[in-house]
Protein backbone atom coordinates (compact mmCIF):
# COMPACT_ATOMS: atom_id res chain seq x y z
CA UNK A 1 0.00 0.00 0.00
CA UNK A 2 1.38 3.38 -0.93
CA UNK A 3 0.59 6.66 0.76
CA UNK A 4 -0.67 9.65 -1.17
CA UNK A 5 -1.22 13.21 -0.25
CA UNK A 6 -4.42 14.60 -1.72
CA UNK A 7 -6.23 17.91 -1.58
CA UNK A 8 -10.00 17.90 -1.44
CA UNK A 9 -12.59 20.51 -0.76
CA UNK A 10 -15.19 19.14 1.58
CA UNK A 11 -18.24 21.30 2.18
CA UNK A 12 -16.39 24.43 1.15
CA UNK A 13 -13.14 23.93 3.06
CA UNK A 14 -9.94 22.80 1.44
CA UNK A 15 -7.98 20.22 3.33
CA UNK A 16 -5.02 17.96 2.70
CA UNK A 17 -5.24 14.29 3.60
CA UNK A 18 -2.74 11.50 3.74
CA UNK A 19 -4.46 8.41 2.30
CA UNK A 20 -3.60 4.86 1.33
CA UNK A 21 -4.07 3.90 -2.28
CA UNK A 22 -6.82 1.50 -1.23
CA UNK A 23 -8.77 3.98 0.94
CA UNK A 24 -12.21 4.77 -0.34
CA UNK A 25 -13.72 8.22 -0.43
CA UNK A 26 -16.21 6.91 2.14
CA UNK A 27 -13.48 6.03 4.62
CA UNK A 28 -11.82 9.39 4.00
CA UNK A 29 -15.08 11.20 4.77
CA UNK A 30 -16.11 9.13 7.78
CA UNK A 31 -12.80 8.33 9.39
CA UNK A 32 -10.35 11.04 8.35
CA UNK A 33 -12.73 13.98 8.02
CA UNK A 34 -14.93 12.66 10.85
CA UNK A 35 -18.16 13.34 8.95
CA UNK A 36 -20.35 10.41 9.97
CA UNK A 37 -23.49 11.79 8.34
CA UNK A 38 -22.42 9.79 5.29
CA UNK A 39 -23.55 6.24 6.06
CA UNK A 40 -22.11 2.87 5.19
CA UNK A 41 -24.80 0.34 4.32
CA UNK A 42 -23.10 -2.26 2.13
CA UNK A 43 -19.66 -0.99 1.04
CA UNK A 44 -20.25 -2.48 -2.40
CA UNK A 45 -22.18 0.29 -4.13
CA UNK A 46 -25.54 -1.44 -3.91
CA UNK A 47 -27.56 0.59 -1.39
CA UNK A 48 -26.83 4.29 -1.94
CA UNK A 49 -26.47 5.12 1.79
CA UNK A 50 -22.96 6.52 1.25
CA UNK A 51 -23.93 8.93 -1.52
CA UNK A 52 -22.12 12.27 -1.58
CA UNK A 53 -21.90 14.89 -4.29
CA UNK A 54 -18.59 14.98 -6.14
CA UNK A 55 -18.43 18.15 -8.22
CA UNK A 56 -22.21 18.31 -7.90
CA UNK A 57 -22.92 14.76 -9.07
CA UNK A 58 -24.17 11.98 -6.76
CA UNK A 59 -21.57 9.25 -6.25
CA UNK A 60 -21.43 6.09 -4.13
CA UNK A 61 -18.47 7.12 -2.01
CA UNK A 62 -17.73 3.48 -1.11
CA UNK A 63 -16.92 2.76 -4.76
CA UNK A 64 -14.66 5.74 -5.32
CA UNK A 65 -11.06 5.69 -4.20
CA UNK A 66 -9.96 8.60 -2.08
CA UNK A 67 -7.09 9.32 -4.47
CA UNK A 68 -9.60 9.72 -7.30
CA UNK A 69 -11.15 12.59 -5.35
CA UNK A 70 -7.93 14.58 -5.41
CA UNK A 71 -8.84 18.14 -6.36
CA UNK A 72 -12.61 17.49 -6.21
CA UNK A 73 -15.37 19.48 -4.56
CA UNK A 74 -17.23 17.16 -2.20
CA UNK A 75 -20.59 17.93 -0.63
CA UNK A 76 -21.68 15.71 2.22
CA UNK A 77 -24.97 15.93 4.10
CA UNK A 78 -23.26 18.15 6.70
CA UNK A 79 -22.52 20.68 3.95
CA UNK A 80 -26.13 21.15 2.98
CA UNK A 81 -27.35 23.06 6.00
CA UNK A 82 -24.66 25.67 6.53
CA UNK A 83 -27.32 28.38 6.29
CA UNK A 84 -30.20 26.56 7.96
CA UNK A 85 -32.00 23.57 6.54
CA UNK A 86 -31.94 23.17 2.78
CA UNK A 87 -35.47 23.06 1.27
CA UNK A 88 -34.94 19.38 0.45
CA UNK A 89 -34.10 18.64 4.08
CA UNK A 90 -37.14 20.59 5.29
CA UNK A 91 -39.35 18.78 2.80
CA UNK A 92 -38.12 15.38 3.98
CA UNK A 93 -39.09 16.36 7.53
CA UNK A 94 -42.49 17.79 6.61
CA UNK A 95 -43.51 14.93 4.31
CA UNK A 96 -42.76 12.26 6.91
CA UNK A 97 -40.10 10.89 4.56
CA UNK A 98 -37.74 10.10 7.43
CA UNK A 99 -38.18 6.97 9.50
CA UNK A 100 -34.99 5.36 10.75
CA UNK A 101 -33.02 7.96 8.81
CA UNK A 102 -30.14 5.78 7.73
CA UNK A 103 -30.80 6.16 4.00
CA UNK A 104 -31.83 9.78 4.46
CA UNK A 105 -28.49 11.58 3.92
CA UNK A 106 -27.95 9.75 0.62
CA UNK A 107 -31.55 10.25 -0.46
CA UNK A 108 -31.46 13.96 0.38
CA UNK A 109 -28.28 14.46 -1.62
CA UNK A 110 -29.63 12.47 -4.58
CA UNK A 111 -32.78 14.62 -4.47
CA UNK A 112 -30.75 17.82 -4.30
CA UNK A 113 -28.64 16.77 -7.29
CA UNK A 114 -31.81 15.95 -9.23
CA UNK A 115 -33.45 19.28 -8.42
CA UNK A 116 -30.25 21.17 -9.24
CA UNK A 117 -30.46 19.89 -12.78
CA UNK A 118 -34.24 19.55 -13.09
CA UNK A 119 -36.39 21.91 -11.04
CA UNK A 120 -39.69 20.18 -11.73
CA UNK A 121 -39.09 16.46 -12.20
CA UNK A 122 -41.93 14.05 -12.99
CA UNK A 123 -42.72 11.14 -10.66
CA UNK A 124 -40.82 8.82 -12.97
CA UNK A 125 -37.80 11.09 -13.02
CA UNK A 126 -37.82 11.21 -9.22
CA UNK A 127 -38.10 7.42 -8.99
CA UNK A 128 -35.23 7.02 -11.44
CA UNK A 129 -33.06 9.43 -9.47
CA UNK A 130 -33.53 7.52 -6.23
CA UNK A 131 -33.78 4.01 -7.67
CA UNK A 132 -30.24 3.17 -6.61
CA UNK A 133 -31.07 4.18 -3.04
CA UNK A 134 -32.55 1.47 -0.88
CA UNK A 135 -34.96 2.43 1.87
CA UNK A 136 -36.41 -0.36 3.99
CA UNK A 137 -38.69 1.79 6.16
CA UNK A 138 -40.87 4.10 4.11
CA UNK A 139 -41.95 2.34 0.94
CA UNK A 140 -40.61 5.43 -0.88
CA UNK A 141 -43.98 7.13 -1.23
CA UNK A 142 -43.30 9.90 1.26
CA UNK A 143 -39.78 10.34 -0.10
CA UNK A 144 -41.23 10.99 -3.54
CA UNK A 145 -43.74 13.37 -1.91
CA UNK A 146 -40.83 15.17 -0.23
CA UNK A 147 -38.98 15.69 -3.50
CA UNK A 148 -42.15 17.15 -5.02
CA UNK A 149 -42.62 19.50 -2.06
CA UNK A 150 -39.00 20.62 -2.35
CA UNK A 151 -39.38 21.11 -6.09
CA UNK A 152 -42.38 23.36 -5.53
CA UNK A 153 -40.58 25.33 -2.84
CA UNK A 154 -37.48 25.86 -4.95
CA UNK A 155 -39.59 26.96 -7.92
CA UNK A 156 -41.44 29.44 -5.71
CA UNK A 157 -38.19 30.77 -4.36
CA UNK A 158 -36.92 31.01 -7.92
CA UNK A 159 -33.54 29.86 -6.72
Amino acid sequence: MSKHSIMVNINGSDAEYEVDSSDTLLSLIREKAGLTGTKQGCNTGECGSCTVLVNGKPVNSCLMLAVEADGAQITTIEGLSANGLHPVQQAFIDAGAVQCGYCTPGMVLAAKALLDSNRSPSDDEIKRAIDGHLCRCTGYKKIIDAVKIASKKLLEEGS
Binding site: L35, L85, Q89, Q90, I93, V98, G101, Y102, T104, P105
Partner: peptide, 15 residues
Protein backbone atom coordinates in the same frame (compact mmCIF):
# COMPACT_ATOMS: atom_id res chain seq x y z
CA UNK B 1 -43.36 15.37 11.64
CA UNK B 2 -40.85 13.38 13.66
CA UNK B 3 -39.27 15.38 16.49
CA UNK B 4 -35.86 13.89 15.68
CA UNK B 5 -36.04 14.18 11.88
CA UNK B 6 -33.87 17.31 11.83
CA UNK B 7 -31.05 15.29 13.41
CA UNK B 8 -31.41 12.73 10.67
CA UNK B 9 -31.69 14.98 7.60
CA UNK B 10 -28.59 16.90 8.68
CA UNK B 11 -26.50 13.80 9.31
CA UNK B 12 -26.05 14.76 12.95
CA UNK B 13 -27.73 11.71 14.46
CA UNK B 14 -25.10 9.37 15.89
CA UNK B 15 -26.18 5.87 14.90
Amino acid sequence: PSIVAAEKVTGKMVF
